[in-house]
Design a protein around this nucleic acid. Sequence first.
DNA 1: CGATTATGTGAACAAGAATTGACAGGTAAG
DNA 2: CTTACCTGTCAATTCTTGTTCACATAATCG
Lengths: 214, 214
Amino acid sequence: MKKILIVDDDAELRMSLSEILKGAGYLTDEAASGNEAITKIFSEDFDIALLDLMMPGMNGIEALKEIRMIGPKPKAIMITAFATIDNAVDAIKKGASDYISKPFKMDELLTTIRRVLEEASFESSIKKLDIEHTMISLSNPIRRNIMRMLNTMPGMRLMEICRELGIEEHTKVVFHMKMLKESGIIEQDKEKAYSLTKEGEKAMDFLKALDNYL
Amino acid sequence: MKKILIVDDDAELRMSLSEILKGAGYLTDEAASGNEAITKIFSEDFDIALLDLMMPGMNGIEALKEIRMIGPKPKAIMITAFATIDNAVDAIKKGASDYISKPFKMDELLTTIRRVLEEASFESSIKKLDIEHTMISLSNPIRRNIMRMLNTMPGMRLMEICRELGIEEHTKVVFHMKMLKESGIIEQDKEKAYSLTKEGEKAMDFLKALDNYL
DNA sequence: CGATTATGTGAACAAGAATTGACAGGTAAG
DNA sequence: CTTACCTGTCAATTCTTGTTCACATAATCG
């Protein structure tokens, strides 16, 4: 069940939106101001925030900025009575997922919500895949050692790595190099020299952190 | 073959120490100052650093501090002509592994070096085991989810976890719980309720870090 | 050139991790 | 007491990972 936070200073509008969204199968909560919204988002997990652009006190854009400081959730849909291209562009740049202008048909809003939710679930499945890859690579001691070596001595070649690891059968190392390549953790240049990718460096940070904490 | 870095401003002393240590089967390198030592340690891996406490410029204690900023390696043995308890205590607090006062017999030094090396290899084998365990636990998505759940809702019991995960066969979950328990990541109270251990919380931090970096 | 070293593929096999099903002791409720 | 449910063990099986071997193709060196 997806949770939607409705942020608007107009209590009536909040109520009617809430009714309709509940009817469409969503859980809803309301906030009358940007500040209230941020407090709620801090303590509770929402999938979507409907943000009115024009509110007394903290306006929608400012609220959005604060929300993005907290984390990637919730996705934001901006709503405004005075739509301008500039406003829209600005909102999207600041991390809003979509932008709707009043007056809007309920259908329109529901469609937008569905689309945004779908995008979000797609994103998060991508993310999961990535973690999966990274973890699988990190889960093997040989691969961890290879990563450590490439971290301190980038540009090593296959046989050097074998010797350094004290592994006779080079094919074993080939196997692990392949996995690391497929996970996008290492890469090879035309000279066959291996080094960490950007992703690999991130993963190394993770490894180092683990190493240090003991 | 273990590598020892000799840090002392007295060139003759360095030479003679180096000769003797080479004779005892160690690889050696020399640095005439704290700064030189740090540069070498940055680019090369040493197992032990012999640090003179009294040196012009950066003294031994200061050098030690810098070295510890780099990482756990190398282990440091402090050497001084003017031994005081305060100095010794201070050195050990700052991360030195041992403390010898001049004049010392060569035997004494060699024994100390052997002991420090042994301690270090013991430490690192412990560490490897731990990482191994943690990694294996983290490498499975079901276990990661269990950890996430126990992080937000500690005290859950087996069947609750099964239902939350949508897993029918409870024995499957039992299996993963067992692994997590053996890795020291979760624990169980008399009421059979599960929760994260201290270790488990650390591991969670890493998971969160990974989640965030995407 | 011929020999050696480096890099890699693919299939077969071994080892380890994960799943499943049969069973069993404990507790709580009716 | 009986029934239902929770918690778990154990062994059998299947699925994944990792290792090894036989072979292939450059590149390099003397």
